[in-house]
Design a binder for these strands. Structure first.
Length: 588
RNA sequence: GCCAGCGUAGCUCAGUGGUAGAGCAGCGGUUUCGUAAACCGCCGGUCAGCGGUUCAAGUCCGCUCGCUGGCUCCA
């Protein structure tokens, strides 16, 4: 099945390989207990692409411990010891695991549920199974990393040591997986950001990116793209302050609910908070006038810079930062307009993901959480609106009960990064709460005062995060319309620099982002640099081109074309910008 | 924030308690070349920071900062 798409293939494999991977986890636990007498066991499940097991050990593991554990595991596998299942009682299990406090906790919680034990090689674990027939059937594995993990995922419980491993039926498949991990590293946006001169980080502002000219160019193209959509979808852009008196945050509820993630400043004995979200500012804008039903829906877009304090261990490249901008907008509308607004948002989403060359996002609909505001009736009304709009949008989606915001249900869009981590990008949230807190109203047709519905939405979400995911998705080879440098003109010798300069100027005049590589190097070196920088077009010019007014076009990773009239190239390039054509070739 | 690892030139990295190194990049020169790295030379260091151990610390110890992988969190 070599032609089958990889995602399906791996998903399929993951299910099929679960017994092997889970058995590998048991063997690893046996090996660890042999090497660390007195080790306490947590749990050891199968995960995507592998397995882990959690341990409470007398000392901290280091990466140097892994080969010894792997060695012991190989011995156990070589013994080809059978896995044997047997049922057991609460009492017997309690006795068997009396030295294992974490297991005892699990046994107690399982209560009357039938318990089963799996034994291999004289070593027994509490386990539902299934397992492979014997330790020789596990396949090839590799231990990958060590990490801390709270027992039962709770910050208040002890931190155990987790060992991650991966396992495949054959060495070839294992090697292929390890190679995929290496490839993912090569398309890591943090690495490409540096190599392509897009952005950097400096300890002087932790978790806050600096965008270099090329990165800023892409960033601004993203903003320009959204502004173009706003024009067509009748959004109005506003610009709002960065720092607000804490009075605002008290009113919006952020002071009570989000203070720990905010930056505060004290000036003239008054406390101010740097904005972590734009919504309260939008409400202030809304409230400046008495509103009529005639002017709704009002769609206020705001590219305001947000600052959120994120705990030091959680930040990550561009995908989790402390300073960022969203393609944020807040829509105020009448209840009967919500449906149409949400539908138009999903239309924007589709247009946007296509233009950026991304596949389908994973879409979730988050429903009422336990702790929530508003009446049941409001939720009963709000949830179907989103559900119906989603169905109409054609996106496959998954409903997640209990995950909604306390102020309303929401739809989130997720994309994976190079190593499979998912990041939330766009979001659409119905807000049944904030209009009330800000006492927003409008005068209805019958002259009565009514409360508008507020919709928070972002298509790209954080521009920083979106860019990070976008870089990894394209491995740095942006679609032509987004490429920070669209073409590099490469003169073959000094004598062609003048013509190269003319070419560059004509490209610039045509609205294309072009550079001239006039340095004192052989053209081979310049071609190489252009390819490494993933420039869509390299335009080589020598005697023939200068004489004929043409360029030799080398497409990124693709074919060459000699003697293309400059005007033809420009027309073609402009067309690609217009249509937002996808990259001509596979990124690599 | 928690657990672990890491931090040496702009980048990638070597350096075993005893004189801080290489390649690339940069700079100067030579070369003028037809589709992925021309050649010669030069410059480049608070070994993350602070403190300690030692005759002697990039190397050992402690603290701080930053980064990485997880965990928790993620209005």
């Amino acid at each position: 099945m070599p032609d089958e798409p990889r995602a399906d293939f791996e998903e399929h494999q993951g299910d099929r390989l679960a017994p092997q991977r889970h058995s590998a986890a048991h063997v690893m636990a046996e090996a660890v207990m042999a090497l660390f007498p007195g080790a306490k066991l947590g749990i050891g499940p199968v995960i995507e692409d592998g397995f882990y097991y959690d341990f409470d050990l007398p000392r901290a593991l280091t990466p140097e411990d892994l080969p010894a554990i792997e060695g012991r595991m190989r011995e156990i596998m070589a013994a080809d010891a059978p896995f044997q299942r047997r049922e057991t009682s609460q009492a017997e299990a309690g006795e068997l695991f009396k030295e294992q406090p974490y297991k005892l906790e699990l046994i107690r919680e399982l209560g009357d549920t039938p318990l089963s034990l799996y034994t291999h090689h004289g070593w027994t674990d509490l386990c539902r199974g299934p397992h492979v027939a014997s330790t020789g059937k596990i396949g090839r594995f590799k231990l990958l990393s060590i990490a801390g993990a709270y027992w039962r995922g709770s910050e208040t419980r002890p931190m155990l040591q987790r060992i991650y491993g991966t396992c495949f039926p054959t060495q070839v498949e294992l090697d292929a997986h390890l190679q995929r991990l290496e490839e993912a590293e090569r398309r890591d946006h943090r690495r490409l950001g540096r190599e392509l001169g897009l952005f950097f980080f400096d300890p002087i502002a932790p978790a806050s990116p600096f965008f270099l000219p090329k990165g800023a160019a892409v960033y601004n193209l993203m903003v320009a793209f959204m502004r173009e959509l706003y024009q067509r979808y009748s959004y109005q852009e506003v610009i709002t302050p960065q720092v607000f008196s804490s009075d605002l945050w008290k009113r919006s509820g952020h002071y009570d609910n989000y203070r720990d993630n905010m930056y505060f400043i004290n000036v003239e004995e008054r406390e101010y908070g740097v904005k972590p979200m734009n919504c309260p500012a939008a409400c202030v804008v809304y409230a400046t006038q008495l509103r009529s039903y005639r002017e709704l829906p009002l769609r206020y877009a705001d590219f305001g810079r947000l600052h959120r304090y994120e705990r030091s261990g959680v930040t990550h490249g561009l995908t989790r930062v402390r300073s960022f901008t969203q393609d944020d907008a807040h829509i105020y509308c009448r209840p009967d307009q919500v449906q149409g607004e949400v539908a138009s948002i999903f239309k924007m989403v589709r247009e946007t993901y296509e233009a950026f060359g991304l596949g389908e996002p994973r879409v979730t609909l988050s429903l009422r959480p336990e702790k929530r505001g508003g009446s049941e009736e409001m939720w009963d009304r709000a949830e179907p609106i989103l559900r119906d709009a989603l169905r109409a949008s054609g996106y496959a989606f998954e409903e997640v009960p209990g995950e909604g915001a306390f102020y309303g249900p929401k739809v989130d869009l997720f994309m994976r990064d190079a190593i499979g981590r998912e990041w939330q990008l766009g979001t659409t949230q119905l807000d049944l709460f904030m209009p009330e807190r800000f006492d927003l109203g409008y005068i209805a047709e019958d002259g009565s005062a009514q409360r508008p519905v507020m919709i928070h939405r972002a298509i790209l979400g954080s521009l920083e995060r979106f860019l990070g995911v976008l870089i990894e998705h394209h491995a740095g080879a942006f679609p032509f319309w987004l490429a920070p440098v669209q073409a590099v003109v490469i003169p073959i010798t000094d004598s062609h620099v003048d013509y190269g300069q003319q070419v560059k100027e004509r490209l610039a005049a045509a609205g294309l982002r072009a550079e001239l590589d006039a340095g004192n190097e052989r053209m081979n070196a310049k071609v190489r640099r252009g390819e490494l920088q993933k420039v869509p077009y390299l335009l080589i010019v020598g005697d023939r081109e200068a004489a004929a007014g043409t360029v030799s076009v080398r497409s990124r990773g693709g074919p060459q074309e000699q003697g293309v009239a400059l005007s033809d190239f420009i027309a073609r390039a402009q067309e690609q910008v217009q249509t937002k054509a996808a990259p001509a070739t596979k990124p690599g």
